[in-house]
Amino acid sequence: MKKTFRILTVGLSVAVFGFVGFKVLSPAAKTGLAKTPDQRTRMAEGRAEPDEHGADRVFISDAKLAAGGVALGAAGSAVLSETLHLNGILRANQESVVQVTPRFPGVVRDIRKRIGDAVVKGDQLASIESNQSLTAYDLKAPISGTIIERQISLGEYASEQKPAFVVADLSTIWVDLSVYRHDFKRVRIGDEVLIDPDDGGENIKATISYVSPVGASDTQTALARAVLTNPDGRLRPGLFVTARLVLAKRNAPVAVRVGAIQTLESKTIVFVREGDKIEARPVLIGESDAQHAEVKSGLSEGERYVAENSFVAKAEMYKGGAAGE
């Protein structure tokens, strides 16, 4: 009987203290009180929670975003372009290509330049011993440029019937684009075109300067050409490129980068930066082009969002959701 009385007494004490407001802290709450503000921030980082609108958001620091290569942008107006995709190839500007042919046939006694060498007009390319006079004469560069072909070797017979060198001024390059017959009426001289050399750099803006009046029987296409400046040698003849011919333009009041758009739980979302949180904001997307997408609702002008490497924010959101379960 004494043991039973003591147990009942303890239970009564707990009940009384609970009635007057005594609070028993959970282990998690005790841990939170034991930490400094910075430590509590680090504990919260990476945990997902819903905001007042029901959108998921996760705590993540600027340092962690930077480490993941995430770049932020501000939602704002952008010009969207309706474009026609074309394939093409880079070629040396044939108006700046010269074949260097020996004046007299003879034996090649000396070669001064190789393929890829830069030359200045008047530079000696080779020395040839004439069959007629048995004296050597110099073969010189007629223009400044780059040696792109060499068709003679030391000691061989050089003929005036065959070019010994080909010199090209590569400061300008042709890009020849293939246009299919159902698109002929959409391509005109003066149209803007964006060239992608597929080298990781920015697209190159140019204009169509020539449209061929005849087609190619083997490809059933016609040629459209743009001339590109090439001061740093970025463009190399023989390489394939893609292009977007600009057909029409319109302004979108609020737009984001195309790479910012993600899908989360069957919703189209953009990751928005709010203080120290990233929010998965549902948005309604309108028209888009290769660079920007119009946002019809869900995002306001000036709001900061994850513009590049948004998959990093998506991964953090999934991790945060798993941690909160």
Rank of each mutant, 00 (worst) to 15 (best):
D198I: 09
I115C: 03
A307N: 14
E45D: 13
T219E: 04
V10L: 15
Y210K: 10
A34V: 08
A118H: 13
N93Q: 05
R57G: 02
E316I: 12
L228F: 05
H182L: 11
L139E: 01
G73R: 04
L65A: 01
A255W: 07
V108R: 01
G145I: 04
R234H: 11
D169V: 05
K296S: 11
S159M: 04
F17G: 06
G69R: 10
F19L: 12
R188I: 04
A29K: 09
R40C: 11
N87E: 08
A315Y: 09
R109F: 04
L12T: 14
K296V: 10
G54M: 14
A252F: 06
D218I: 06
E274L: 00
R181D: 12
K205D: 11
I152K: 01
P142T: 04
Q132G: 15
N93H: 07
G116N: 01
K23D: 07
R236E: 13
L86R: 03
A75P: 10
R244V: 07
M1Q: 15
F5E: 15
A34I: 06
A206C: 08
A48E: 05
A260D: 02
A315G: 14
M1L: 15
V270S: 00
P231D: 12
Y210T: 12
G286A: 08
F19V: 13
A48F: 06
M317A: 11
I208L: 03
F311D: 06
F22L: 10
A313Y: 01
S310T: 03
N230L: 09
V167L: 08
T242Q: 04
E160N: 15
H85M: 09
D169Q: 07
E45L: 14
D198C: 09
K185S: 11
G155K: 03
K121W: 08
S266C: 12
R47K: 13
V107F: 05
L154I: 00
I115L: 02
V14A: 15
S130G: 02
L154A: 03
A71Q: 15
I111M: 00
G155W: 03
P142A: 07
L86Q: 05
P237C: 09
Y157D: 10
R150C: 06
G54E: 14
M43V: 13
I111Q: 03
G200K: 03
P163Q: 12
K2N: 14
V283C: 02
H53S: 15
A92P: 02
R91Q: 10
N309C: 05
S96I: 10
H85R: 13
D191Q: 08
S153V: 01
L33F: 11
A158R: 03
R103C: 09
R114W: 05
G302M: 14
S144V: 09
T83C: 09
F240Q: 12
D199W: 07
P282M: 04
G76A: 07
V97W: 01
A126C: 00
A126Q: 00
P197I: 11
K23G: 06
V270K: 03
A66Q: 12
G215M: 01
I269F: 00
L235T: 04
G116T: 02
E294D: 13
V306T: 08
T229S: 10
I152E: 00
V312P: 02
D289N: 08
V107M: 07
H85N: 12
L25M: 10
F311C: 07
T9A: 15
N93V: 11
T36A: 11
K319I: 14
L80K: 06
I111K: 00
G302H: 13
G106L: 03
L25F: 08
S144G: 10
L228M: 09
I269A: 02
G116Q: 02
